[in-house]
Structure formats: C-alpha cells, structure tokens
Amino acid sequence: MTAPLIAAEGLVKHFPVRQDVFGRVSAQVQAVAGVSLAIAPNEVLGLAGESGSGKSTIGRLLLRLLDPTDGRISFAGQDVTALHDRGLRPFRRQAQIVFQDPIGSLDPTMTIGAAIAEPLRLQGMANGPELRERVGALLQAVALPAGYYNRHPNELSGGQRQRVVIARALSVDPSFIVADEPVSALDVSIQAQIINLLEEMRTRRGLAMLLISHDIALMEHLCDRIAVLYLGRVMEIGPARDLVRAPRHPYTEALVSAVPEAARAGRRRIILRGDIPNPANPPAGCVFHTRCPYAQPDCSRIVPEMRPVASGHLKACLRDDVP
C-alpha cells in the first residue's frame, strides 16, 4: 500500500455517561476501543457497523472534531493529534465532512451561497468577486442552478440540500472527506444521484473518503476497502468485494446475510440472537461472543488480535475454521 493519507493508531474514545452530584464521572462508555485504520490517497474506506459500533465517533475523531482519549492520528505524515485551534487550520482545509441529515447540516438563517462560501472565508482562500465566482462554480459542479445562490435551505428538497452540503465540503478543495451516512436520509430515487456525485468527485478530484454507512450494498459499490466495527472495535477489514462476498468474521457474515438481497442470492440467513450489548459494559473476551453462532469457551476469555487471513484482509477472531 502507498503511504497513507490519514492514519489512526490505537484510537480510543470514552464518553462519560453518568456523573455524580459533583460532576465527577462515575461511568463511561467506550465508544471506540483501540481502532487502527489507514486510508491511502484517493481510496474509499467504508466503516460498517450498527448503532453503538462507534463508526460516527471514529469519523469525528479522524477530523479532530472530538479529542481522542488515547491514540494517534496522522495526516500526510504529520501527527495532528496534539494540534488545536490555529494549529489545526491547515488540516481543516484538507479534511471535510458530509453528514447524514441534510436538514440539520445547513444553517436555516444562511443562504446557500453563504453556506458554501463559509469554509472558503474561514480559510481565507477567497473573497469578494472571486469568492462569488468559486461558489458559482461549485454550484455547477454539484448540478444546482446558479440561481440557488440567494435561496435558503428550506426552499430546497432533501437531495438538493445534500448537494449543497457536498459543495460546501468540496469548496476548500480537500483531499479527504468523511461522509457519514450521506444518502440514508434521502428518498431511494434521489440516493443514486448523490452516490454518483460522490463517485464523480472522488475520481475527478482524487479524493480519499471515509464512508460511514450501514448499507452493505452501497459500501460494496462505493468502497475499495471495508472495515466492520462492533462495539468500538474492528472485527474485520479487507477489500470491499472480498469482504462482502466471502466474509471471514462471523459478525460480517451475519451482517451481510441480514441484507434482504443476500437471501435471494442463495446466502444462508443468519439470525443473531439478542441485542447489541451495552457499550458501557462490553462482554469480556471477544465482544461478539455473546451473539456469535460459533462461539467457543475460549471466546469469552481471550481478546482476539487482528490477524491477516489474506493479502490486505484481516480479522479479529480466534477461530480459523469459520465462517
């Protein structure tokens, strides 16, 4: 693999869930528990997982919108973990975010033009007529009419708003984007427009992307590699098509088989028992063992290490023989 654009090592994030009367933390959720990832330039890495898997938290940690409890983040070879405020400015120009909710991610009091211009102004990259011109070009790039410049978000449909959000993220010409469920709030017939737009931007601008999603089919389509998360830990990571077609971790297998289309393709349906455990109190050993159809006595004692199963394909599972 080429030198990574962005890399995280041993990322840990705790959130306080309970505080006593004096504001002291008495319980914590381990949202992210030791995650290491690397994304190469122009690569799309997918983060798959269910609620409580910590996938959105990882996205925000990588962008330094949250401070990690432990671990290191480096961008283009430079350690950005310890940087703050002003020191982060150059990194902020390189790394942007697209959210799931196209309503909440635009300020209702700001015009579309002002929203797209905001990162450019913050980074001091353009002003005056040049700023207006660049915003116009961005509107065009995401296939929105130039007349939308002075409109407000409430005048736009969900798909159009998501285009604005993408234009805003692209305005500073970043090299890395975190897309957190970029299409799941959109109508099915609109999703494809946004998926294609993201793909086009990636090819045309050489973007690297972290795609956070629960949609396995979308990830297989859009990603080069996929990392599967469960309770803040990576269960399996590997080339997208290999991982989806031939999962090597029992959790990945169940996740893929839960996609309705998988059953029609002849996949055996695996119904997992029970619910996702409380991240404040994760099971001992392998965190998945409470729901794993292949669990053995060892699984509740030994924490499995990530180990390679094929070239560029790793899993954290004690068993070799399954699935």
């Binding site: 099915v188 017939s189 609109i190 999703q191 494809a192 427009q193 998926i195 294609n196 793909e199 396995i216 089919a217 979308l218 297989e220 389509h221 859009l222 989806v244 077609r245 893929v256 996609v259 289309e261 998988a262 393709a265």
Partner: peptide
C-alpha cells in the same frame, strides 16, 4: 438506482 449486492462487475447506478 440502488447498488446491487454481489454485483458481478461494478456497474454505474442510474439515478432517476
């Protein structure tokens, strides 16, 4: 307009 799971070759999806 939906990506197909296990698609043989990566096909470009066609939006409406």
């Amino acid at each position: 307009s939906r990506p197909r799971l296990f698609a043989e070759t990566p096909v470009r999806i066609e939006p409406i």
